[in-house]
Design a protein around this nucleic acid. Structure first.
Lengths: 220, 220
DNA sequence: GCGCGCCTCACCCGATCGGGTGAGATGCGA
DNA sequence: TCGCATCTCACCCGATCGGGTGAGGCGCGC
């Protein structure tokens, strides 16, 4: 479906039984191929050096090196290898930590063979799969993130030049720096800054920065 | 599984054929009950007043009132009703817009009856389901968001009192305001501020605010 | 007991900032 | 053509800020 070749899968789980169960799950699908197994993160990294994998199915809780750290290392050493994290419970902290470490997917261990295979294929295709509860957390996170749209009404009150100055203010430029960058005199900059503060109803440039971040004007 | 009673589902899609197809998909599962149908957002809102629904399965593209706006209204008028958004393509903008409007889930129209039912159950249970591509977008978004952990090394260099002052700086407090809130003299505050600037290697309080936001110290 | 880090406060100084006021040039639309 | 908004710049003033230096009190560990 993706590129003709079989998807090379590596397993990392400290429980022998779980590895066996996962291995069996991966036997049927003809497009999947189990190329490596490991009982912890350190072992996994070692195995991956000999057997490149497209997707690593990784348990979070493992001795020596846990799944989060292992995910980070895998992503650093093998940028092309995607990581699908497996856990017993889909706790928020673990999900976020795994995502930040570079995981592409997240599945609970009660997933069926079909779900696992589908998740591996999705992750390999550059998509992603998350356990329902984890998905809910992410959605909540995204929904909370503000949009630039919220500030647009106030922003519309500013003139073009004032918006230029605002952009400089937001990155922490002093009046002199703004003057230099926009080819203006310090006096002119001050005029614009004063206008901005008045129009936005803010007391000083510090609050302009806060306002900008709070309203999502800054992307980070 | 959730509360014994059947999950009341409402459908909103302008394509008659699609509504029929979805309706048929919902016939089999014994825990789902189709209580209302609508061809656009406005009609949906009207129907929901008579027939409360637990989950609304909503198309994005509809005449009169699109799915995004309809989602917003539904969430405003019926906070207990969850929205599962359906589209033909899982475009990023639509996903984010829908999430911001309050949608709990996101599915492409090529989903199977089982996937649809599972998604409805997940959404009703307070969880969520996303199309794989959409999930990937969200994960990317979350992964990009910085963590407080990034700043912890620098933050560790600050003394307890300096962290108190830092917290005030970040919300835009002037030295006098900080002094008042922390029961200090202006001179003491200045001492702390100077120490903070020196330790963080920043030129002024404006950059402290920027630094805090960039490192995710502020939650928003 | 002595040193060391922390918290507290003080004074001085120069730089920067924000507020107030005014004004010339330009361009756009009524 | 006559406003009107915008952009530009100027000067003044008081407030605030950041840097430098010093110092007393307190608690903790060596």
């Amino acid at each position: 479906m993706t590129d003709g070749a079989r998807i090379r899968v590596a397993l990392a789980d400290d429980q022998e039984l779980m590895r066996q169960a996962l291995g069996i799950m991966l036997e049927d699908p003809p497009d999947l191929e189990l190329v490596a197994q490991a009982a912890d993160g350190a072992e996994l990294l070692e195995r991956l050096r000999a057997h490149r994998a497209d997707v690593v199915v990784m348990d979070v809780r493992m001795p020596r090196m846990d799944g989060i750290e292992a995910t980070r290392r895998v992503r650093a050493e093998h940028p092309g290898t995607r990581v699908l994290v497996l856990t017993t419970f889909d706790l928020d902290e673990v999900v976020f930590a795994a995502i930040r470490a570079g995981a592409s997917g997240f599945l609970t261990k009660d997933a069926s063979a079909e779900e696992l295979a589908a998740a591996i294929r999705a992750v390999h295709a550059g998509d992603a799969t998350l356990a329902p509860r984890a998905t809910a957390s992410l959605i909540d996170f995204v929904a909370r993130a503000p949009t630039a749209a919220d500030a647009e009404t106030l922003l519309a009150a500013l003139t073009a030049r004032e918006r230029d100055v605002l952009a400089e203010l937001v990155v922490g430029a002093s009046n002199d720096e703004i003057a230099e960058r926009l080819y203006l005199t310090g006096n002119t900059v001050k005029t614009h800054v004063k206008a901005i503060l008045a129009k936005l109803g803010l007391p000083d440039r510090v609050h302009v920065v806060i306002w900008a971040y709070e309203h999502g004007l800054v992307v980070r």
